[in-house]
């Protein structure tokens, strides 16, 4: 059986989620040990348990060790079946991470799937909904399957309570993805979302990102959340290029000035623009698992610890060779290539 060291690399929940996704995808059972070892609350937390149970539900897995605080888990998948599923995540934990766990298997399932996901949709520790919708899923579409998402309600930390729907039209086999050139930048757009908070926050954020990135923010693009569950604020910057769309997110935080939130995300965008690569750090993470099964290559910024950890987990499950190489040291451009065996 495949054994994964849960404390490897960044050693967080990502190791578990990637393992679950690959196990479902390949049908191979695995055992993960030392889950979140060395953290102040080691072992499985509620959000991890939700991911495990979601995965279990979709492939009828046999699971041992799925309890809060458990540092060992054995997961034996059975048959992945598409269909309608509903998952709810507590503590405003991200529902998008649950999707990330189950999506790869459902992309190649026999049946069409519809998912109803509840929980956090925009929280700082996970890819926000807008990123999935506009950056990641269009690329998935290029590999064959059609995935549509629809946001019903926003869910911010700490209240959570967001909801979105996903429809997945699977394919038998994912097509390789080639994403080496970004191409010409068509459009840059900034949007601020506020929920149960003063409009002023959004205006201040847009003013800063406008100035830093040379964007026209008049009229300001503000989403004022109707029927809010709880308070929250994000500022989104979308960079639409010839071959790819990237989405960057700044998260409003209690006790952090709106201007600081905007500065931080603007800086991230400028780094991406300067590198001239198509794929940003977070997008690279999302693409890895799919590319490892389908093959392909993309250019991105220097791989984060998150990315290298993901590659290690992938190697445990797949015979694919994943090559990461720096192709332009001056600008920090790297190429990641997955060779299907």
């Amino acid at each position: 059986m495949i054994t994964i060291d849960g404390s490897m690399g960044e050693g967080g929940g990502q190791v578990l989620r990637t393992s679950l996704a690959l196990s479902m995808l390949t049908g191979q059972p695995f055992r993960i040990e030392k889950i979140r070892a060395g953290r102040d609350r080691p072992g499985l937390l509620r959000q991890h348990l939700t991911a495990v149970r979601a995965a279990k539900g979709i492939c009828g897995a046999e699971v041992v060790g799925d309890a809060i605080g458990s540092q060992e888990l054995t997961f034996t998948p059975c048959m992945v079946s598409g269909g309608h599923y509903e998952f709810a995540v507590g503590t405003a934990g991200s529902a998008t991470l649950v999707l990330q766990t189950v999506l790869p298997a459902l992309l190649v399932a026999k049946e069409r799937s519809t998912l109803l996901l509840e929980g956090g949709t925009h929280n700082p520790w996970a890819p926000p909904f807008d990123f999935l919708q506009r950056a990641f899923l269009p690329l998935v579409g290029r590999m064959g399957p059609k995935v549509r998402v629809e946001l019903d309600r926003y869910g911010f930390y700490p209240a959570g309570g967001g909801r979105f729907r996903v429809t997945i039209d699977p394919v038998a086999q994912l097509a390789p993805l080639e994403l080496v050139e970004r191409g010409e930048i068509h459009r840059k757009r900034a949007t601020a979302i506020v929920s149960q908070l003063p409009m002023d926050i959004a205006l201040r954020e847009l003013k800063v990102v406008g100035k830093r990135l040379g964007l026209v923010v008049d009229p300001p693009d503000i989403v004022f959340v109707k029927d809010p569950v709880g308070p929250g604020n994000v500022v989104l910057i979308e960079v639409e290029s010839e071959n790819v769309t990237e989405v960057f997110t700044g998260f409003g935080q209690h006790g952090v000035r709106a201007e600081a939130v905007a500065e931080k995300v603007a800086k991230e965008v400028r780094r991406y623009l300067a590198a001239g690569v198509p794929v940003g750090e977070h997008l690279a993470d999302q693409l890895l698992v799919l590319m490892a099964t389908a093959g392909g290559r993309f250019r991105t910024v220097a791989p984060s610890r998150h990315t290298t950890t993901n590659i290690e987990v992938i190697k445990a499950f797949l015979p694919s060779e994943i090559i990461t190489a720096c192709v332009d040291e001056a600008r920090g451009v790297w190429e990641v290539e997955a060779k299907k065996m």
């Binding site: 937390l45 809060i68 605080g69």
Partner: peptide
Amino acid sequence: LFQHEELL
């Protein structure tokens, strides 16, 4: 009480 990740 219900907002703690490790308390289910």
